[in-house]
Write a protein that binds this DNA or RNA. Structure first.
Lengths: 342, 342
DNA sequence: GCATGGCGTTGCAACGTTGCAACCGGTCGA
DNA sequence: TCGACCGGTTGCAACGTTGCAACGCCATGC
């Protein structure tokens, strides 16, 4: 029968006095040190059981100067792509016996700084960024080498990172569309592209340039945001219907691509007959027949696994030295949203 | 210029000696107590700046007996529905100045207990469950009133909970299909239904029974799991094609519904002409023209807001007494995946 | 001239652990 | 018989904070 007066958790000391040993001995039992005599250990374990004792991680961590906690900072957890990665990170760090502390920044630089402050104050052992930083230099100074950091599906020059080869991904898309016979290409990305978006665009433009093509660059934040080309307002119906309308569009990510599909549907534009659309990420739903999106595939599992691996390499001191960039390879998954132009 | 030898964060004491005051005074400044003289405060702030001092939350929390941290436990964060809720919880608790500690259990009872143990050891101030528990009784004993708990989109008899009215949601679906003229109904749910699934089914069956109908109950874990009816193996092509094949199917959640759409597509069965499909949750993508799913809408934002509200009510002692169940109303959002049978 | 009071500051004890040196009783070898 | 050694146990100091009581100092009031 537990005798704990609910609410005041038992401490090492409580267990010690019940088992008639010193706190040190209880501590040894709890941490599984082999130095304690079997009968003592049994007595202690019984006391632990009776009091429903749980070690206070705060005290332990205080003493050790670090918590067995990893901070995860993502820009937008409403986006299933990042949400899934966050959950993968949690799963991976759990295998090391670590807890995950989560923060979403929603792209707000202040919230980002707050989040990092929170993590630092809680003395996390490491930090995983699932997004690019708003103010990389400030943040670097803020972190100041106090904890190991890894960027996953993002990067910064001052820390380890794991990304898919965005540039090459963009190239693959351009080549694919060009091979299909498209000559009028376009790129659709968020109004405020992060560096991944920029790389994808870069690769896309580069491969297009190799074929003497100059894709249009469209800014759009689906589903509601206004559309613009080179800063000038525009709307989808004219963009997609004009005589020079693009026949092959590369969307910076699958969610934009899927929303674009929706726009095309609503305008009666048929995909892929009238318009080819290619995405990036290969999110879960891209495989659905209803969506059936041609896209650049990146393995979230692999990115996260490599990232967490690198992070613990730093934490455990197995890895030292300059930041290391791991590039995972991108591959094109051709599905039904792309085809030859009419 | 910061003089911190990188890696050993400055402490209250460091700041105190640099500013030539006592640690207590620094503490007062840090916590914004109004008791300290302006010029002293300025000196201390300068020292804090210079040393890039950050209070150690572990020490603070140890002393206070509780961390300003909320634990979030979800079954499956790969499911965007839960992932989004988790991120909403994070956002809400952040407004109270709390951090979120996240764990996914993947439906594994042991991981669930580990997760809760982790939270308790870290002395979280409250716990949010985004899923039903595997062993509610054991977990209740484990938590033993030590921290306030709230269930969101789930419930347990011993804690506060916020759920949509699942039963009524199920009724709405049945009535909708019946009104459209369907007589052969079916329900598709996971092999191991949780209580939400069960309630939805209950409501569905109840309303069907009122119309003298007996829907088939199909077990399926999309996208790969085998299908069975009443324990007997089956496959979609016979289920959907036989002479008595259901013409109206209620899927326990939108993801199942969408996967079912996919199955129908692959079999050349037209929705809604040959088959009406209704989901539950109204996930983001249900609105897409390509999906256009009729579904029962529950507002994740509202559920989470109410849940976090209730949790902090307990934490701050504003609320006491017996567990309270908040039922959010369910409403049917009719889209294109349901229509009259042929 | 001395008690009063308020303001600003300080010292000390606590929070629940862990690491380390010291200790204790007993056995063994010389 | 004595010292060395050993397994097992203990006490103490630390970790970085906070809360509280106490303090010193100056201005005020009588």
């Amino acid at each position: 029968m537990t005798t704990d007066r609910a609410g005041r958790p038992a401490t090492l000391g409580d267990v010690a006095s019940l088992a008639r040993v010193s706190p040190s001995t209880v501590s040894n039992v709890v941490r599984g040190s082999d130095v304690v005599a079997p009968r003592t250990r049994r007595r202690v374990l019984a006391a632990i059981e009776e009091l429903a004792y749980r070690p206070n991680a705060l005290a332990r961590h205080l003493l050790q100067g670090r918590a067995t906690t990893i901070g995860v900072i993502a820009r937008d957890l409403g986006n299933p792509f990042y949400a899934e990665m966050a959950s993968l990170v949690e799963r991976e760090v759990a295998r090391f016996g670590f807890a995950a502390m989560l923060c979403a920044t929603d792209g707000d630089d202040d919230r980002e700084e707050q989040a990092i402050g929170l993590m630092l104050e809680n003395r996390v052992s490491g930090l995983v960024f699932l997004s690019f930083l708003g103010r990389p230099a400030e943040i670097e100074k803020m972190i100041n080498g106090q904890v190991p950091v890894v960027f996953v599906a993002a990067e910064a020059p001052w820390a380890d990172s794991v990304t898919v080869d965005e540039h090459r991904g963009g190239e693959l898309v351009a080549r694919h569309l060009i091979e299909l016979g498209h000559r009028r290409l376009a790129f659709v990305g968020p109004r405020q592209p992060d560096r991944a978006d920029a790389r994808r665009l870069e690769g896309f433009l580069r491969a297009a340039a190799d074929a003497q093509l100059q894709p249009a660059v469209i800014a759009w934040d689906p589903p509601d945001g206004a559309v613009s080309i080179g800063g000038a307002k525009a709307d989808w119906s004219t963009i997609l219907r004009g005589p020079d309308a693009a026949t092959g569009i590369f969307a910076a990510n699958d969610f934009a691509a899927i929303d674009l599909l929706d726009v095309a549907d609503s305008l009666g534009i048929r995909v892929p007959d009238d318009l080819s659309i290619v995405g990036f990420d290969d999110v879960d739903m891209a495989r659905l027949r209803r969506i059936n999106l041609t896209t650049v595939s990146q393995s979230r599992e692999a990115l996260v696994r490599l990232g967490v691996e690198a992070l613990f390499g730093r934490i455990e001191g197995r890895i030292a030295g300059d930041p290391h960039v791991t590039l995972a390879s991108a591959s094109l998954k051709v599905r039904g949203s792309s085809g030859p132009p009419r």
